[in-house]
Design a protein around this nucleic acid. Structure first.
Lengths: 119, 119
DNA sequence: ATTTGTCGGTTCGATTTTCGAACCCACTCA
DNA sequence: TGAGTGGGTTCGAAAATCGAACCGACAAAT
């Protein structure tokens, strides 16, 4: 971040791909959901326990991520209908975000690193 | 993300550096604030306009980021007291997160890339 | 000299989001 | 048969965010 960018005060919020990305994955729990999928955890109950997300919020997040093409559902049981969730190619492209967050998080907590998704 | 990780259901949310990182920067507006500082925008009013954050929320975020050692205040005027905000070394280490988000955001929106902070 | 405008907040009620408890139904298992 | 599981949904409570208004110390305009 040594590159200096002119401040841009256009009187309106800056239009920026970072903001676009955060519109999709910036809500509470979304990135942790994606972390779990990357770890190979795909079922609602498991995602819910591992992230700590409340079930309704998790259901909302999964729905939104699916609508945005980041994840998709796969039926693993028909009676009753049971879906698991997997990353799409687009979702997998968020790997570098998660990796960067993990590396920064390791620095600030200085704790034991947990094996995470490789970029 | 080709590496397969065993699911871990310990009955409690997973302890993970990603979650630690999101505790610091995962709140609404925080990463956009850091984006602005990386762009060389340091003053409250400018950050506020460029991010679109409401002023109270922005004040809260700046305070928290300062407490977490991600940013610091610098006095640029004494009467009245006026501070601007700069990234600490720790804050600059979030560059890869912002870069990864930008790159992903560019993919999903397919729009014109805006010059952003270099990692 | 006076008035208006700017800045960086703070205050506060309204709105939105998140949360936790309870409920639902279709199964599976003891 | 009754208890448990899974993936939700419902709903009121709690928390977070928001937008409007206010504040005081200046600076700029008149």
């Amino acid at each position: 971040m040594s590159q200096k960018i002119e401040s841009t005060n256009l009187g309106a919020p800056r239009v920026c791909p970072i903001a676009d990305a955060l519109d999709v994955v910036g809500e509470r729990w979304s990135l942790l959901v994606l972390r779990e999928l990357g770890f190979g955890v795909h079922r609602f109950k498991d995602i819910q326990i591992n992230t700590g997300a409340p079930r309704e919020t998790l259901a909302l997040r999964l729905r939104k991520l699916e609508e945005c093409g980041v994840i998709e559902r796969r039926r693993y049981h028909d009676h009753p209908p049971r879906d698991e969730y997997v990353l799409t190619a687009r979702g997998r492209e968020l790997g570098p975000v998660l990796t960067a967050l993990r590396e920064w998080g390791e620095r600030i907590s200085g704790g034991a690193a947990e094996r995470g998704p490789a970029a």
